[in-house]
Design a protein around this nucleic acid. Structure first.
Lengths: 101, 101
DNA sequence: TAGAGAACTCTATAATATAGAGTATATAAT
DNA sequence: ATTATATACTCTATATTATAGAGTTCTCTA
């Protein structure tokens, strides 16, 4: 991953918060809404973007007679997240190793 | 730092690229323009935002009879960068420690 | 006095995040 | 049967913000 080509997934609070939440396991729409404080419309829109980009999978089903949308991060999404963190770590390390000026 | 309150500085390719570049030392306007591929107007605008937010310091002087704008990251900026990386590292670690589902 | 280079400022446009209203679907209550 | 309720949308309008690009300022040089 290049610093000049950071994926859009990491470029808004909301998408990043969703991905972060999903790192630790499946979450449903309701959970994500509560965790992020997003409105329905916005959350739906951003989830769709993350899905289209291959970062998450969305599974729709009826649970206890209620519709339930459950989301999970894909291997790709997890990998991209790791790469992103490693990129930033690398930059920080470089800087702290004293390559100043 | 909270996942729901990621600073704006980290929310666009350009600002993040500028901060990254400055981590390893001072850079002037020209350097940053070349490194990021940004246009004058856009770079100027984003530098201003970073400065207003206290992430960078901008120093204007004449060098070799030419105006030279040199930018450096502040301690605050560096600290925020580190916090941001640590936040993401923490999330990743949590996830990899097997707190799945 | 004209020209060139650097680094803007300003403004218009484009892109996109967000809010909120309305909608579909399935079930439960009356 | 009809109405109500919950969930999770879709759609559209608005607000925000990044970006491009033209024009401007400042200094020096020829």
């Amino acid at each position: 991953m290049e610093i000049n080509a950071i994926p859009e997934a990491f470029q808004t609070k909301l998408r990043l918060a969703v991905l972060s939440a999903l790192l630790t396991g499946k979450k449903n729409f309701r959970d994500l809404k509560q965790m992020t404080g997003a409105t329905d419309g916005n959350l739906g829109a951003q989830l769709k973007k993350l899905e289209e980009a291959g970062y998450i999978e969305i599974d729709k089903a009826f649970v206890n007679q209620k519709p339930q949308t459950s989301c999970q991060i894909t291997d790709f999404g997890r990998g991209q997240f790791r790469e992103y963190v490693e990129l930033l770590e690398g930059l920080l390390r470089q800087a702290e190793d004293g390559l100043k000026d």
